[in-house]
Design a protein around this nucleic acid. Structure first.
Lengths: 84, 84
DNA sequence: AGTAAAAGTGCATTATATTGCGCTTTCACT
DNA sequence: AGTGAAAGCGCAATATAATGCACTTTTACT
């Protein structure tokens, strides 16, 4: 039972030092899913997922969320305080 | 000096009970920016931002991040623990 | 009420994300 | 080495996000 944790997405779709593609792939295999499984479960085209996992693409929020849902992840917006 | 907080994006692009469009608009006016200002600062088309704020659209991760950057927000992925 | 700035919208165009198909390559296991 | 599953990729088609332009509507202030 380990706690939830966060991954920051930077401007290039990377997360900390990991790429979004790596996160998706790691999480997918952690869940013992093939690309085909995940694509089907998420309702995303297989070709789309494949492209994403090799680092190509700029997914729509919808696509990202469909995948995140199946992968047990959640897309968040962190709102920072405003310094005055 | 109030703490940072999080907003959850659901499958329809809503955040908790607020829509993504509302979050963007509120944050923008909080920063005293016009749509034109924000669009220019974020490097996003004015038409695109306008559409987003009226709840139309399924922005790409890139577009979302460009806006978030200017608005002092950050896109995150929350990774949930896996129950066994 | 009059005015200017800001915001909303219809239309057309361009860019690109999404998709399926077929084929090749890689991986994992015997 | 042989084999089947999984993953990668080129191509073409479709869907739609992103954009600019022009115009209308709303908002805010005097």
């Amino acid at each position: 039972m380990y706690p939830e944790y966060f991954l920051y997405l930077n401007q290039k779709g990377n997360i900390m030092h990991q790429k979004l593609s790596e996160i998706i792939r790691e999480r997918r295999s952690m869940l013992h899913l093939t690309q085909e499984d995940l694509a089907a479960l998420a309702g995303v085209g297989l070709r789309t997922l494949k492209a994403l996992e090799v680092g190509k693409g700029n997914p729509s929020l919808d696509t990202l969320q469909r995948l995140a849902e199946v992968l047990g992840m959640e897309v968040r917006l962190e709102v920072k305080r405003i310094d005055r």
